[in-house]
Amino acid sequence: MKTCLWCLNTENKVTFLKKAHTIPKSLGGQNFNKNVCDECNEYFGNKQDKNYSIEEALKEAFNITRKRMLLSSKPKKQVGKFKSRFFDITEKKGKYKFEFKTSFRFNSEFQKSLCRSFKRGLYKLYFEELNRQKGIGFETEFDLIRKFARYDENDLPIFYFQRSVGIIMILDKEAETPTLFFERMKYLYSDEYFEEIEFLGHVFGFPKKEFNLENFENYHTKSTEIKKGFFVGITKIEKFTNIDITFNIMNK
């Protein structure tokens, strides 16, 4: 009997009729998770009480990265034009700059809310792919993720690692159809409490279970050590400008 990864209800209480994309279809995602019920699947795609959905917040950010990557390559299939509801992208002498559109630029509460939805969307992407690829996630130790991503409870930190060089290794067609690979690079470090992933060239770290200060300090020390020569810093994501979404590092 199927159990939903998010609400933990079984198929005698909820339905599993629709395909649940782990990576939004609007981002080029093609993988599905069969353990996401229709109600939870719709939750991430619906606007709820906001003017945007969690999946849209995720798509808005990463489609900017996709556009940057595709400009540097020749896509093997037609990819639709990228239009952003929230951001303006400008280019000058090969350098790209993004900023909020005028109607959102001075609305700090909106920017904060959108960033939170982006973080919840990143957890959603990670958790559903973790379950799809490794078959885990139903355990109570993952309730921390469920509460934040699905039920908007508490606040979980996500850290972004700034690259020191603009060489980004991605697979053929990865920008067209993004995929999340676990343990794909040697500079990714994970332990009992924290996980690191690389998605579309961006490296993120975040807690996957309850942790204390000592747990974080141990993780931070070991992660920083293994990244020497590849990354120059770590930033706690509090706004979109904490992320090099346009990959300006590639111009250095």
Rank of each mutant, 00 (worst) to 15 (best):
M1L: 14
L5K: 05
L5A: 07
L5H: 06
C7D: 08
N9Y: 12
T15N: 15
L17R: 14
K18R: 15
H21R: 06
S26R: 09
L27T: 02
L27V: 05
G29I: 00
Q30R: 14
N31I: 11
N35V: 07
E39D: 10
N41F: 00
N41A: 02
F44R: 01
N46C: 12
Y52V: 04
S53Y: 08
E55M: 07
E55R: 08
E56V: 01
A57M: 01
K59D: 13
N63G: 02
R66S: 02
K67A: 13
L70A: 08
S72H: 12
S73E: 15
S73F: 12
K77H: 11
V79C: 07
S84Y: 06
F86V: 06
I89P: 03
E91N: 11
K93A: 10
K93F: 08
K95D: 03
Y96K: 13
K101R: 14
S103K: 15
S103Y: 13
F104V: 02
F104D: 01
S113Y: 07
R116W: 04
K119M: 11
L122A: 01
L125C: 02
E128P: 04
G137P: 01
E139F: 04
A149G: 06
A149P: 01
R150S: 09
N154L: 12
I158M: 11
F159L: 07
F159G: 00
Y160M: 03
F161P: 00
L171Q: 15
F181I: 08
F181M: 10
F182E: 04
F182M: 06
Y187C: 09
Y189Q: 02
Y189F: 10
Y193S: 11
Y193F: 15
E198F: 05
H202N: 10
F204N: 00
P207V: 12
K209G: 05
E210T: 14
F211C: 07
L213S: 15
E214H: 13
E214T: 14
N218R: 13
N218H: 13
T224W: 10
T224A: 15
T235A: 06
I237D: 00
E238Q: 09
N242K: 10
N242M: 05
I245Y: 00
